[in-house]
Amino acid sequence: MHLSPALSRIAASQTTAMTDRAIQLREEGRDIISLSVGEPDFATPPHVIAAAKAALDAGDTKYTAVGGTLALKKAAALHFARDLGIEVLPSQITVSAGGKQAIFHALLATIGEGDEVVIPAPWWVSYPEIVRFAGGKVVPLHTHAQHGFQFTAADLEAQIGPRTLWVLLNSPGNPTGACTSAETLHGIADVLRRHPRVMVLSDDIYAPINYTGGPHATLANLHPDLADRILTISGVSKSHAMTGFRIGVAAGPQWLIQAMERLQSHSTGNPCSISQAAAAAAFEGPQDFLIDWRERFRARRDLVVAAINAMPGLSTPVPDGAFYCMVDAAPLMDRFGDDAALALHLLEHGVAVVPASAFGGRDGFRISFAADEAKLAEACRRIAKAVA
C-alpha cells in the first residue's frame, strides 16, 4: 500500500461507516432501524421526477459546462434570492455533484499548508477532514448543549489568529440542529471587518427546515458589504428529498467560483446533466410541499426529544432546525467507557446512531429523525431498553 500524505491525514466518515454497518447487518437478517444518515424519507416531488424524465426523453445526456448549465444557474439564482435573500448573478454560482463537493473544492482551492480554519463543534463530519486533506489546521470553537450549541462573536474572535483563513458556519446545523441568530451574525460581521483576511463558508443546506417561525438568517443577506468574502452553500438534497441526484450549488465571489470550477474540471467535470434538469425544476417549481414536510419533521422532532429526555442518563436540547438531535449520554459513560462503545451497544439492540466523537463532540450520539414516526417510536423503545 502506498497512500499519499494527504490521505493519511483524514479518516473515513463515521456517518457512512455506521450506515454501511447497519446495511450489512440487515443483509444478514438483523432487524436494524437506521437513524445514522441524514436523508429525508419523503418521495422526491413529482414535478422534479417529471423534469428528469423529460430530460432523458429529450436526449439531454451529454456533457454540460463544467460548472453547470446556464438554466440551472439561473434557477439557483432564483433560489438564493427567494429563499436566502442573496442577490447573485449566474456567473457567481457554480453547480457541483452535491454540496460536499462544493465545500471540498472551495477549501482545496484556497487553503495553503498551515492555514487555519475555525469550525464550531460539534461539526459535520466532513468539515475537519477536508481542511486536513488540504493541509490546513482545524481550530475548534466548542459549543455546549446547555447553551443550545450557540457561540458568541467574542467566542469566535478569540479563536482567530494570524493564520486564520476561513470560518465555517452551518445553520441550521448538522449535527445539533442549532440556528445562528441574526444578532449573532451581526456580531460576526463586526469581527470579520476587524480581520479582513478571513473568509466565511456559510453552509445553508438545511435553511428550508427551520422550526423557529422566523426567517432564515444568513450572513451574505444581512451584510452584503462582506459578500466578496462569503461563499454560501445550498442545494436540493435535503429540501427536495434529492440526495441521490447529487446536486449542490454555491454562490460567492467570481474569483472563487472560477477557482472551484477549475478544480472541478479535473475531478468530476460537469455534474450529471439529468440531475441538473431535475434541480432546475426543483428550484423553479412549487415549494408549498415544504410546509407539510416541515410540520412532519417538527412532529418527529418532538416525539424523539420527549422520548430521549424521559430516559435516565440521556438528554437533548430541542433543535431549531434540520432533522437531528445531539444526545448527551455523559451519565452513562462510567458503564460504557466512551460514546463509540455506546453506539455499538445500541446497534446490537437494533438502532444505528453515530457517536458524538465523530462530530468533534463527546459522550453522546446523534439521532437523525428523518424517518417515519413508527420507526422513530420503535427506535426510541429500543434505545430505552438498551440503556436501562
Rank of each mutant, 00 (worst) to 15 (best):
S91K: 14
F323Y: 14
R132S: 01
A106L: 14
P128I: 03
Q159T: 13
G269F: 13
E373P: 01
I205P: 01
N210W: 10
Q14Y: 04
V48F: 09
P175S: 12
T218Q: 15
T69K: 11
V125S: 01
G67P: 09
P5A: 06
A52M: 15
H2C: 07
A250T: 14
F151M: 10
A17T: 11
G148P: 02
A106M: 12
G112N: 12
R335F: 03
A75I: 12
I230Y: 09
H195A: 07
P162G: 11
D339L: 01
D190E: 15
D338N: 15
V131N: 01
L192K: 03
K53E: 12
A154H: 15
R26T: 03
P312T: 11
L165M: 06
R362N: 09
A207K: 01
D372P: 04
A134G: 04
G173R: 07
A374D: 13
K62V: 15
C325Q: 07
G148C: 09
R132Y: 01
K62H: 15
H142I: 09
V354E: 00
R30Y: 06
G321N: 00
P208T: 11
G38D: 10
A158L: 10
D204M: 14
A377W: 03
R381S: 10
I274E: 02
L141Y: 00
V117T: 07
L226M: 12
A207Y: 01
A6H: 09
I111C: 13
K100S: 04
A189L: 08
S181A: 13
A97E: 08
A241L: 08
M199R: 14
H240T: 11
L7G: 01
D288E: 08
T64W: 13
G38V: 01
V125M: 01
L35K: 02
G99Y: 09
L332D: 02
A377V: 03
K137F: 11
H2A: 12
D203P: 00
E87N: 13
T212R: 07
E129T: 02
Y127V: 02
P271V: 05
G235V: 03
N270K: 08
P175H: 12
F283R: 11
C380E: 05
F42P: 00
D334K: 12
D41H: 15
R132L: 05
Q14H: 06
Q276A: 03
A340M: 14
H240W: 15
F80P: 09
D60M: 12
R382T: 00
E28M: 15
P162S: 15
